[in-house]
Design a protein around this nucleic acid. Structure first.
Lengths: 105, 105
DNA sequence: TTCCTTTATCGGCGAATGGCGATATAAGAG
DNA sequence: CTCTTATATCGCCATTCGCCGATAAAGGAA
């Protein structure tokens, strides 16, 4: 995972509403559309749609057109990759072999 | 870790330059000041100082006044807490304890 | 004291963000 | 066909971000 990509995902997750949306989507395993999410939040439908777009563009969620509505689901494997990338960042910080490090694997 | 706090940290990390700064600070075990970081980046000193402030406000790094300069170090335990909070978020997404989940492991 | 170095902060500027209402599109329902 | 529902997108506006140069404050050296 590139640094830019990692930063993108982190920034997408860096908003309380979007974290909340993620949890809502994760809780309901199937068939969660924009209005469903909106009813759980004190925000306008357009605002929720924009937040969904941010998460979508970051690759954190998926869209599944289902009849007249769009159902959103969490892309867990993508979040796992994020966890891995984050772990790699942490490992780099832990190692701290000044400059002459003989390098990672 | 509250959602707002979590979102704050994620947003602070959600910028390529700040990720880079984190790595720089993690690489050099001690005595890394603002100008040191600036020399590793194609940015003005004031810009780097602002990024350091963002990371500082988010609690991701610490400042240690050392003579005339300020040395910054990574707060690893804070990042570990972030990892834990993130893991909790993931777990919540995995669990999905609700109505009809017949669902695979 | 007088420099010099380091740093944080200020002001400014263009771009992005986050919120809203209004609207256009698309898919069913009747 | 018409009507309704669901959604995305389009302004619009206020705020924040990211960047810069310039400057002030503070510590150390001469």
């Amino acid at each position: 995972m590139e640094d830019d990509d990692l930063a993108n995902v982190l920034r997408a997750l860096g908003h309380p509403v979007r974290l909340h949306i993620l949890r809502i989507l994760g809780r309901q395993r199937s068939d969660c559309c924009c209005t469903d999410v909106t009813q759980c939040l004190p925000l306008a439908q357009s605002t929720v749609s924009q937040h969904l777009k941010v998460l979508l563009d970051a690759g954190v969620i998926e869209r599944h057109p289902r009849g007249t509505r769009n159902c959103y689901t969490v892309r867990r494997e993508r979040l796992e990759n994020l966890g891995i990338a984050f772990g790699g960042l942490m490992a780099g910080l832990e190692a701290a072999p000044q400059e002459k490090s003989t390098e990672p694997v």
